[in-house]
Nucleic acid binder design. Structure first.
Length: 335
RNA sequence: GGCGGAAUUUUAACGUCG
């Protein structure tokens, strides 16, 4: 069992899920650690549904999950579609010997933040008696999911009153909660907090801050953050391009895109959506088409979003025929 | 019988109605 477990672990971290799955399927003896590892691995690969299927299979086989397994299964629930699954796991936890476990409460807060309503998440938070930094970060993360900037700020203050220092994750979530016009002021208050911990500031926080300004209508401030950053990753570039795109400043967006490539950062699928929508805002047909053509050079295969941008761009320019040709190239079902 | 192996919180785009 131990060998199989180690193998699964290695295969999964080497991005060989098929090998991992094969070892898993072939192992006759499966203990909880093995189950937990395979479930966690699928969650980390973004395959939450597969993870949940495995969890169900495990239950069916009569195995008894422990607190580690429950935590993994809860983290596999992402999006409103998984709310029912999440609730089911919640009830299993409540009936188990692990109810009240702090890690599980943290996982529950997160799960309801992602899958449920704001009230659901708050209920789980209020119910928890023991709280650590993760609990606070989780509820602030739930604020971000639901766009509650004000609440995020008040939780940041409360956690400090209880003696917990906000960390990177706290601030990333708190800024994330402020990515709408209404919450902008709360975001600024957050920022005055963060000046004190700026020394440990990281790219993640600055990305979130940049994004907040971009989405709240202040390209100038977004760019200030951008200029002050030492290491800019794909997310940084995508966010600043999106900021310019949203304000109809397509030329700046495209300039930034070429600068990005010059600096050796590889644009990904999302970056291209941002660039294409920048072109779409102001009708830069030629640039948009060039952009679309370049995608493949970066190993990005066009998905629905890219096609939508381009078709929109072409049809606005009156080039319906070309738009229709693209429509026919669409992979999968049409609408 | 002992030991070791697993878990929970974070940032970028996205046509639907209000």
């Amino acid at each position: 069992v131990v060998i199989a477990t180690a193998l699964v672990n290695v295969y999964m971290s080497c991005h060989c899920p098929n090998n991992a799955k094969r070892v898993f399927d072939e192992s006759v003896e499966r203990d909880m650690v093995l189950w937990t590892i395979i479930i966690t691995s699928y969650v980390q690969k973004g395959q939450g549904e597969v993870a949940l299927k495995l969890f169900q299979q495990m239950i069916m086989e009569g195995a008894l999950p422990n607190e580690f397994t429950y935590a993994s299964a809860l983290s596999a629930c992402d999006g409103a579609l998984q709310l029912e699954n999440g609730k089911m796991i919640h009830s299993l936890v409540a009936r188990s010997e692990f109810h009240g476990d702090i890690v599980l409460y943290n996982a529950l807060v997160t799960m309801y933040g992602k899958c449920g309503t704001w009230e659901d998440a708050m209920a789980a938070f209020d119910e928890s008696t023991e709280r650590d930094k993760v609990t606070w970060n989780a509820i602030i993360g739930a604020c971000a999911q639901h766009g509650h900037g004000k609440d995020a700020l008040s939780y940041v203050q409360k956690m400090q009153q209880r003696g917990f220092f906000p960390d990177k994750l706290t601030y990333v979530s708190a800024f994330g909660a402020c990515t709408n016009q209404l919450a902008m002021n709360e975001g600024k208050k957050n920022y005055t907090h963060i000046l004190y911990v700026r020394d440990e500031s990281s790219a993640n926080i600055e990305n979130a801050l940049l994004n907040m300004y971009g989405r709240c209508g202040s390209v100038a401030r977004a760019h200030l953050v951008f200029d002050g950053m030492r290491c800019r990753d794909v997310i940084t570039w995508s966010a600043i391009i999106a900021a310019y795109a949203q304000h109809g400043l397509a030329e700046n967006a495209l300039d930034l895109a070429s600068k990005m490539v010059e600096e050796g950062v590889i644009p990904n699928s999302i970056t291209f959506v941002n660039m294409l929508s920048a072109c779409g805002q102001v009708g830069l047909v030629k640039e948009g088409c060039d952009c679309f053509a370049k995608m493949r050079h970066f190993g990005v295969t066009p998905i629905m979003e890219h096609y939508n941008c381009l078709i929109d761009l072409l049809s606005r320019a009156g080039r319906l025929d070309e738009g229709e040709m693209l429509l026919k190239q669409l992979p999968g079902e049409s609408s």
